[in-house]
């Protein structure tokens, strides 16, 4: 780390620099209907969730399987359509964005998925995959994009020749590094880590967590970090929310251990 960077400290409790403010987010999935004329039934995947994420911090969401963690996070970055609610990102309600406006806004919020094996298109080389957001969002000239790909590979600790390889030639941890490089490419403010380390073995988990921390320190990134691993959540996150059946049942800054006891046993 270069010396001039500010040390990671827990920001004070001021609410001035809120990057993301989610208000009463609801996501329902249709689940068929009873009979032909019966009322359509719905699954209440996320049922009125509100939270705030401060800039440069990590917001953790824990909860058991099916509690709506991933749905919440993916709805927040508009990958799953939200039924209702406000998603105020950097002062703008992105829940209302449509079409081209939404597409271009995507450079500001990215995602790293749980399974690095299915999150990379098997038919394309690593370099192309990292370049994709730059090409699609029209960031920089073709030459700058090439340089940026090399720089990103360097930042996530992969050699430049990795750009020519196909995803199946990497190990799980290396693929997750690729996913992180790709998410970093358009210089987002927010990265959703959707169980980003859950599929990796413990040693690799620590590497990836360190990488995420390093990137956060260097670039002031904000994370929404989803996990069911309480240990990981506890030391990685600044604020923690516990979800259960589509609702946030507890929410507190990380040092508070009581809420972890409230999470359903895993």
């Amino acid at each position: 780390m270069s010396g001039g960077l500010p040390a990671l400290t827990r920001p004070a409790e001021d609410r001035t620099d809120v990057l993301l403010d989610v208000n009463d987010l609801v996501v329902h999935f249709p689940a068929g209907r009873r009979g032909i004329l019966g009322p359509p039934s719905k699954v209440h995947a996320v049922d009125g969730v509100s939270f705030r994420v401060r800039r440069g911090t990590t917001f953790g969401i824990v909860g058991e399987s099916g509690s709506g963690k991933s749905t919440t996070a993916q709805a927040v970055i508009r990958l799953i359509p939200a039924t209702s609610g406000q998603i105020v990102f950097d002062g703008e309600n992105i829940a209302d964005f449509r079409g081209e406006r939404l597409r271009l806004a995507r450079s500001k919020f990215q995602i790293v998925f749980q399974d690095p094996f299915s999150a990379l298109d098997p038919r394309r080389r690593a370099g192309e995959l990292i370049r994709e957001p730059l090409d699609l969002l029209n960031i920089g000239s073709p030459k700058e994009r090439e340089a940026r790909v090399r720089q990103l590979l360097e930042e996530v600790g992969l050699p430049p020749q990795a750009a020519d390889l196909f995803p199946h030639q990497f190990s799980g941890g290396q693929r997750q590094r690729l996913c992180i490089a790709r998410a970093m490419a358009p210089e987002p403010d927010l990265i959703v880590c959707d169980e980003a380390v859950s599929a990796l073995d413990v040693a690799i988990q620590a590497q990836i967590l360190n990488l995420l921390k390093k990137l956060q320190r260097e670039r002031g990134l904000t994370y929404i970090f989803i996990s069911h691993d309480l240990g990981v959540i506890q030391h990685f996150c600044d604020d923690i929310a516990v979800m259960y059946l589509g609702k946030i049942v507890e929410q507190a800054p990380a040092p508070v251990r009581a809420i972890l006891g409230a999470a359903p046993p895993l």
Partner: peptide, 13 residues
Amino acid sequence: LDFVKASRAAGAG
């Protein structure tokens, strides 16, 4: 699949 979602997140129409 995740890589399709990832592409959408990367700004694919």
